[in-house]
Design a protein around this nucleic acid. Sequence first.
DNA 1: CGGCGGGCAATG
DNA 2: CATTGCCCGCCG
Length: 251
Amino acid sequence: MRHGHTLFKTLCIALLLLAHAIAVFGAEDFSACPQFFLNRTPPAIAKRPTDRALCYDSFAILYSGESKTPVFVAERLNRASIADAGEKRTDKFFADARLRSAERATLDDYKGSGFDRGHMAPAADMPNPTAMAQSFSLANIVPQAREHNRGVWAKQVEAATRKYASRAAGDVYVITGPVYWPSIAESPSIGPGRIRVPKYLFKLVYDQQQNRAWAHWHENSDATKASPPISYNDLVKRTQVNFFPNTSPVR
DNA sequence: CGGCGGGCAATG
DNA sequence: CATTGCCCGCCG
């Protein structure tokens, strides 16, 4: 009797710990890190079987075990977070142990591929050493054309977004991600793990104070030049993702 | 031009 | 493993 009671208590504690672990790591959804999403509401998207929600200190990832890249990465930037940014880069990329080995990218996949390991949530956005280190998870990375990554994307897109957030009155919600050919399976890939190479990259920026949104849309190519942002509605049409449910931003 | 952000690769 | 040097594009 006494023994049974103790066993029951132990089981209860184990279940609570498990539930807590799932919440912390966001294994099933983004309930552990809603703060990175406008109105604490993640994009409305039909999840594929290998998609996984991952929470980090300063960003959240919906990760695809099919493409072995993010589906999207969400951040919330503001004047304070940008003021804290500027950590020294660690450059320690790593295969993310939170993902099943069959569904994660490895360092080998990118090595010698000819593509840069391009951040979706940029390292330079990160406000502290932990977040900086986490940003080098390959779950936050896509194969990106070298000169695109270091040139127009780094300056006209990433740095420009930081600059905007540093001057914004309130929070700026940013969602960055890859776009593939109509079928991921037909998309080119790198490495033994067949990491898919995006056809396009987008970065959606939303200023909550002004209810304004715009999106950078770039072909993942060394030849890509700076281009004016597209509208929120155009991005929704091109990606078929309702990024901001129940919100209608203006341009 | 130097500095910065984003990388790669060779070396100990 | 960490360090170092190098490259690139862009900005002021």
